[in-house]
Design a protein around this nucleic acid. Sequence first.
DNA 1: TAGAATGTCGTTTTT
DNA 2: CGACATTCTA
Length: 738
Amino acid sequence: MARVAHLIEHHGVRANEILAVTFTNKAAQEMQTRLEKTPYSVKEPVRWLGTFHSISAKLLRRHAELVDLKANFTILDSDDQLRIIKQLLKVNNIDDKRWPARMLAGIIDDWKNRALTPDKVPTADAGAYNNKGVELYAQYQTRLRELNAVDFGDLLLHMVTIFQTHPDVLEQYQRWFRYILVDEYQDTNIAQYLWLRLLAGGHKNICCVGDDDQSIYGWRGAEVGNILRFEKDFPGAHVVRLEQNYRSTPHILAAASNVIRGNESRLGKELWTDKPEGEKVRLIGHWDGEEEARWIGEEIDAMQGGTRGVRPMNLDEIAILVRASHQMRAFEDRFLTIGLPYKVIGGPRFYERMEIRDAMAYFRLVVSPEDDLAFERIVNTPKRGLGDKAQQTIQRTAREHGVSLVQGARIAVEQGLIKGKGGAALRDLVEGLARWNAMTRGPRIEIEDDSVIDDGTAPVRYGPPEVSHIELAQIVLDESGYTAHWQNDKTPEAPGRLENLKELVNQLDNFENLQGFLEHVSLVMDNEQDSGGPKVSIMTLHAAKGLEFPAVFLPGWEDGLFPSQRSMDESGLKGLEEERRLAYVGITRAEEVCTISFAANRRVFGQWQNAMPSRFIDELPEDHVEVLTPPGLYGGGQMSAGIETRAAQANVYNSPGWKRMQSRQGQYGMSQPRESRNTVIDATAVASFTLGERVFHQKFGYGGVVGIEGDKVEVEFDKAGTKKVVAQYLSAKDDVPF
DNA sequence: TAGAATGTCGTTTTT
DNA sequence: CGACATTCTA
């Protein structure tokens, strides 16, 4: 960052000649604030600072017509994307059981990450998705154009295409962005790399910051090769190695270094620091995931109260970093019960919530009535008595007339194709949409020819709207019945959803019109409202990239979870090494205190499963780690309490009259617990693992496969939940005394 | 058509 | 377990 400021200060570079690119919005914000805090006198803001995606979106709006789009295209999220793909599969008579839509979405994303348009997909990939991948990809792109929409991948891909096919446009931006700065370069994929290389092609004033040991996005097409090839791409590049670390204590640094040493493919570097020694990295094992959450909760309390032997910590200084987002739940549950304030970062985003997406769909339709996806989403939300049949009628009418769904609906209403209550409700909706759309503009002025219909081509202009976009948004939500829908809803979530809708409308204040707002929401907005004082952060290791915290907890270090079994199965050693880099990233997020933990037992899909401690734990340097549990047994003392708790819980869930309201997206109504679930057993066994020279023993339980140094006890359940020992290769309890 | 019951399957990681 | 699809019922 200082580098940017330096350019501005000493080389007469103007702030708006700089293009600064990050991967995440958080990093962009961070850059912005750092820039403001810099010792240099930056007078004007760096205007072109943002993520690859947000900058690409801005550029693409200027040149949309070059790729057959209109400037007001909508940006689809992965939900919309999936819906379109499902529709395509249906049209093509493809069984999405055997060939899931998700898979195709992944393949398409992958191609887009590699900057491959349908015509450029290499023949080697022709077999993808049952030989139909490329064909469907082409259809998908066509459909997106029809909808005047792009997905995330398109934002970059379209810009690369434009740069490649329109040298004049490219040159304009090469002149414009005379200096380019890229953060986290090790995570660029091919599309991003081309994007950068094209833009920097003329002047080659490009500065990239990155660390090959922190490359954790291989699965998203990131190419560490980009960073290794940098000097070749930009001959004469000056490489600066930064090996002094200003963040972590020596113990933490040593732990991280020792783990990452296990990787074979790396450039290799030795980090050092002149920070005071601090405390060792701490390691603790637990009986199960709930105990782990409980223990961490207590630790945080103690840290906050200053009774933990380290300086008193503010909740903002503490983070819990998990491998997979499902791990977050145990912590949320626990922290809610003990009233510990927390925030989930990078969890479900604000705009991904059902009510926000519904509201946005209404806004989208108001702004652009041809947005069929938005129409499909809200025709029957709130319930208007328009079921499958009615919706099919609308679809058919639209198709017959070659018009959008809204138009189709209007025709269907006029021709009386939909009878009864549904018909009346649809008429209301269609009329409402027309009315609201008209409210986005003021009165029509400068009519040159009365005979010209306002179809978008007529030379008409409008005065300023009479209603502000904020009022309009409120009107749309109220008149459509959407607000009432949630007011009448009795589920416990309803008040929160109304609250969110209010927040959504409030946010509009920061924008000039609905359009600008829609763009912001789809690209930037997250659920961080940062209100109500300091909070513990809970996030994935991936989301923690680039961040730092005085105190970090790293739970769930079990083989299979971390390193992730899937990563190892799918990518072998490469996968394992990426997992190890993730471990490295995790440890190095900590400035002063780092606590690693694991649990012997965890519930997976409602079944108890157990796991060995992560192999990365074996790679921790003994001298820099303090093991909190004595080398006897991990979590042993908790066992009986654990089983009692769970048995009690199972009784509640399995009691015959027990019912529960469901109130999730799309689903409604009551559901009963199923017999075969919530099984509990009390089988225990012991396994050992090593840390440096020392051997530790760990007790497992709860059934499933119980591992003992290669030998095992297997337990199975029948439908009624009766336990049965399938195989017992070793007598568990007798082997290790405890 | 809406709601209720039953069936099936999945947990990496994200802009 | 819980999300989602499918099938059954009023």
